[in-house]
Design a protein around this nucleic acid. Structure first.
Lengths: 403, 403
DNA sequence: GACATTTGTTTGGCTACAGAACTAACTAAA
DNA sequence: TTTAGTTAGTTCTGTAGCCAAACAAATGTC
């Protein structure tokens, strides 16, 4: 697809073709099943051009004709759908105590979702590469067995990942300057598909942008609710990673110089007053990373029971969260801010207070049209987004070669 | 130019041509004088194609051949430059006590710069339209006298401007929901060029992005230092305005819940602790908007004199500013944050403390490569950016018609 | 069964790119 | 002065891929 940003790049016919192939592919994905005539009418492309593009996409096994339908006057249309069967995109998420791998087809249908426990908190990046490679090989072999071609693999890492895919710092994993993409490619020995690495919040934002209920929003922010608080930023329809890839580090926005000490050493950071740690510091100060989920379940149980101290705690966290989101909304004016991670189970007690603070602080009329929503994609959002990252590159014109 | 965002749009040959014309135009702007051969070598376009594109651009009087130069072996090259003479882009800035109009040619050379006093603080949007139309007509007639075609006019407004160019709120001007673009177009009676309206910080960011010393940065943030503090955000080479156009409202990021009351009613907003008002509250609490410049001069004089209370005040403001910029840098990871407006004369006493806070708080290694710089474009940055907005649309392929 | 309607293909024309051959204009060396 | 070498820019030819219009195919309606 021809892009205008990052410097002027000349265009030629292959760019036109790639752009239009991607246009048709995206249209079918969003409007399947549909006919060639539908595509031509909606996109403005000529019928003949659409036929040629569709033939090309069928050749590449990205589209498939279904049986005719639509009993109206005139010749019945041959309906087209995405061909789910011949391809797969793989997403892997590394975390403190597990590695998740998902594979999806072109439609985004989940083909498999494997979780494997892994002592991320005490393993080196090298050990992680070995574990990921082993898992990836199993996924690839399963996909091959299903006669699927793997289009790519993306790894989601909770940490600072630069634009080249180098993991600069992953505090919870204890990694520094790890070339995960390079090492994993090497470990997979010429895998025949691209291997990418990105930040987990960025990829979760991508998952929301492609699969979430707000997929129409060209401007959205996804906020992770883990021990760390990070954000993935989609503006004007694309992930915006900043100059070096470190955008979205909202966890250490200082909300209160008199607030509690944060693990970064400063006081009153968003993470310290509204992160999951701020809740568990009161309920389970010595919880290990692997116990987080259980502890949060316990908090939910106590909130359901109406325990006053827990409700007050959650209200406080919600207010601070709202203040942080107000900063985000004022700066970026997204259509929607999506709360993910452990914020999801806690949402019933957080969102109302957060919204109140948010709308009270956003300067733009009507809150700038910004809504605060809760992720519906669950804990696997980052892994799903990693797979979505692969599909995105298909959408932007990097189609698999013709048969 | 073919863009991939906001929905898939099909491409055809005219898009290829427009893209390549824009590529050549941009190349010549950035590398003038240069030959056709240079263009071909650097852009990757074929020599023949470049010749055809250049001929087209010369026809449209966007480029011009100069006398030959370059005494090297081989046939001497005919050097090309932007043709400054036949076009003009107009930028207008409305402010509390004046209206500024600038006109620039294609190269960005300033053709005129008129300032006209205007009681913006006490005038309605309607009265402003009348005044702007009168000024614009004079500028247009001057340009016509110079045989220049006006390519467009953009108005910079200090306030919230939505994506359609409606001024939603301009607190210092007292305006609400004013369709400035529509009314000005009407007042100019079929001007034959597009009239746009945007936020002043956005346009100043555009000016920095096109003309400033950091014009190579694809990710930059411009911060206005006026009574209000606002930001213009350029990411991945383009202005990012958010869902409704209200991005960059950083003035009311709450830095300290125990801080001084802000005019928005909350406490400790960036604007309240690091805005120009925070300085003048101590030195000239009753200054009217038109006296701001004088009062700031007075502050500069006293700082130069080494008056301790002023130095301490400025250091305090610098620290708060740095904290605010840390939030910006953490969220957006720009290559550079540029301080504008009244921060410019005060920079010698602000920047060091601000940088210290900034680098101490940015999570990314090496501060994410983010530098804090001072604008060199002066108070006219917004008006210049308004003109740049017009040139931008030429660059993106909307070329004036052939002769 | 003729006709209307809609779908999708075929044909022809056009635009604008790339590559190669060519012409032009100069320097440098014989 | 001639000749070779070098670089600039144009012309010619081929091709990709778009659009428009005509056409073929498949169905419903009268």
């Amino acid at each position: 697809m021809i892009t205008s940003h990052n410097g002027p790049q000349p265009a030629d016919f292959t760019d036109v073709r790639a752009t239009n192939l991607a246009v048709v592919l995206r249209f079918v994905r969003e409007n399947a099943p549909c006919s060639r005539a539908d595509i031509a009418a909606s996109t403005g492309l000529n019928k003949a051009t659409v036929s040629s593009l569709v033939a090309d996409l069928i050749d590449r096994r990205l589209l498939r004709e279904t049986g005719l339908t639509e009993h109206r006057v005139g010749r019945p249309a041959t309906m087209l759908v995405l061909d789910g069967s011949p391809y797969a995109a793989i997403g892997i998420e590394v975390n403190v105590d597990y590695i998740t791998a998902v594979a999806v087809d072109l439609k985004g249908e989940e083909l498999l979702n494997w979780r494997r426990s892994f002592p991320g908190g005490t393993s080196s990046a090298g050990q992680a590469v070995v574990a990921m490679a082993a898992l990836a090989r199993r996924v690839v072999s399963r996909m091959t067995k299903e006669a699927r071609q793997v289009l790519g693999l993306t790894v989601a890492v909770p940490g600072l990942v630069d634009v080249n895919g180098i993991v600069r710092v992953a505090p919870n994993l204890g990694w520094r300057d790890a070339d995960l993409a390079g090492d994993l490619t090497k470990a997979l020995r010429d895998p025949g598909f691209p291997v990418l690495v990105d930040n987990d919040a960025n990829l979760a934002a991508l998952a929301e942008h492609r699969f979430g209920p707000h997929r129409n929003a060209a401007n959205l922010v996804y906020v992770t609710g883990e021990v760390g608080v990070g954000a993935g930023i989609v503006m004007d329809g694309r992930l915006r990673r900043g100059g070096q890839g470190y955008s979205g580090e909202i966890g250490h926005i200082e909300l209160d110089p008199a607030g509690p000490t944060c693990r970064c050493g400063r006081r009153g950071c968003l993470e310290a007053v509204a992160g999951i740690g701020a809740i568990l510091a009161h309920t389970a100060p010595d919880a290990s990373p692997s116990e987080l989920e259980l502890e949060i379940d316990e908090v939910v149980r106590r909130a359901r029971n109406g325990e006053q101290d827990i409700l007050a705690l959650l209200e406080d966290v919600g207010r601070h969260l709202g203040r942080g989101m107000a900063a985000v909304a004022n700066m970026l004016n997204p259509e929607v801010v999506i709360l993910g991670g452990y914020y999801v189970p806690l949402a019933p007690w957080l969102v109302a207070c957060a919204e109140e603070e948010l709308y009270g602080r956003v300067l733009a009329p009507g809150g700038g049209g910004c809504r605060l929503e809760v992720s519906t994609l669950g804990y696997g959002a980052a892994a799903l987004g990693a797979a979505a990252r692969v599909l995105d590159s298909v959408d932007s014109g990097r189609l698999p070669a013709q048969r």
